[in-house]
Amino acid sequence: MATPLTADQFISVLKNAGVRVVEHGSWRTHNRNHKGTWGPIHGVMVHHTGPYSTEAGMVELCRTGYTSLPGPLCHGVIDRSGTVHLVGYGRANHAGSGDRDVLNAVIAEETLPPDNEANADGNPHFYGFECINTGVGQRWPEAQLEAMHKVSAALCRAHGWTARSVIAHKEWQPGKPDPAGIAMADFRTAVAKLLGARPPSGSTLEKDKPVYAQFPGSEFFRTGRRSALITAMGKRLVAEGCGKYTKGPGPRWTDADRRSYAAWQRKLGYRGDDANGLPGQTSWTMLRVPKS
């Protein structure tokens, strides 16, 4: 439970997280506060937008809303490049009615119960991010997922929350599917790693499971780099059926490592520049390389 950040604090927190932020109109004062309270704030909620014609059009729709549901429909829209578009601040029409038991679990930072009721208003209590995705099998670009993780972790850090304070719309309101294709236990694992904390139970890094190596940054993986971490990564790529090695893997970063990692990225559904063989935060987290 906390007092919401001011708009200036909010944008500062996001920029300090290392994401690109674009401001739209008078977002600082664009809200639905005349319809009810804003705060106390308890957590962060992530959504997918659903079908869209253009990303710019979806950002504008989230800013203005429509007749039956006026905007803003969130605080930030995260596009597929990872850019965060700020469209409103304060009470927003994004969470709607959800399960009070879920709200209580978020406040207590406990395991979420099933969302089988819609008996609490979430709009006063969650920062909301709409993430551009059709929700019908469209892949999530790594840059977009990284931005989603970063903004969630940044807001948790600002309020002293753990990753348990980050939830999906589908965990809040019965019948909602968003964000489709994202396992929230893994999402919270990535947020917890950014916070430098042990992930919550129920995630992929529980107390009784192995400790995995933190992502060293894409610049770590360059020709000539030698590290036991590269060997550990290569062994995991082989275990996932993505090894392209004629010998090894070994501790020196080679083109075989890059080709193997590109195969892993393609296995995750990435294509084009997102499958260039250079590790990124999200694909690295999902590979689960043991700490050397």
Rank of each mutant, 00 (worst) to 15 (best):
R100K: 14
L195V: 08
R91G: 00
S68W: 12
V289L: 07
P113A: 08
W172P: 03
V59A: 02
S81V: 01
S152R: 09
K291E: 15
A180M: 11
S260N: 07
N123P: 06
H34M: 12
V84K: 02
H30R: 14
R157C: 06
T6Y: 14
A262T: 04
G243T: 08
T231E: 15
L278D: 10
P70I: 05
G18H: 09
Q281L: 15
H169M: 14
A153D: 01
V44W: 10
A168R: 04
H48M: 06
D273K: 12
Y261V: 00
A275R: 03
W284G: 10
R266E: 13
S97N: 15
R266A: 06
V102H: 02
G122N: 08
L5D: 09
K247T: 15
A275W: 14
F126N: 02
E109C: 09
N116C: 03
E240C: 11
R164I: 09
T204E: 10
T285V: 12
P70S: 13
H47E: 09
P249L: 03
G248R: 09
Y245W: 15
G36I: 09
P113D: 12
P72R: 09
L229T: 05
S203F: 05
W172Y: 14
R80P: 00
R258H: 07
V166Y: 07
P174G: 03
P199K: 02
H125K: 07
A256K: 11
G96H: 00
T29S: 13
T282M: 10
G181A: 08
G76Q: 11
P199Q: 04
G135R: 00
I167W: 04
T49K: 06
G43L: 09
R236V: 13
G243V: 05
H159S: 12
D101C: 13
M286L: 15
D274H: 09
F215M: 06
P200Q: 04
V166Q: 03
V87G: 00
L69I: 12
Q9Y: 03
M233C: 14
T54A: 06
L155M: 11
G272E: 01
I132D: 01
L268M: 13
L155Y: 12
E109G: 03
P199V: 05
T162K: 00
V21E: 11
L86K: 08
R63C: 03
Y127V: 08
I167Q: 01
A190W: 02
V166T: 12
A256N: 01
P72S: 10
R28P: 08
T49E: 02
F215T: 07
N116D: 09
V87E: 00
A153S: 05
C74E: 08
A154E: 08
P70T: 10
R271A: 13
P40V: 05
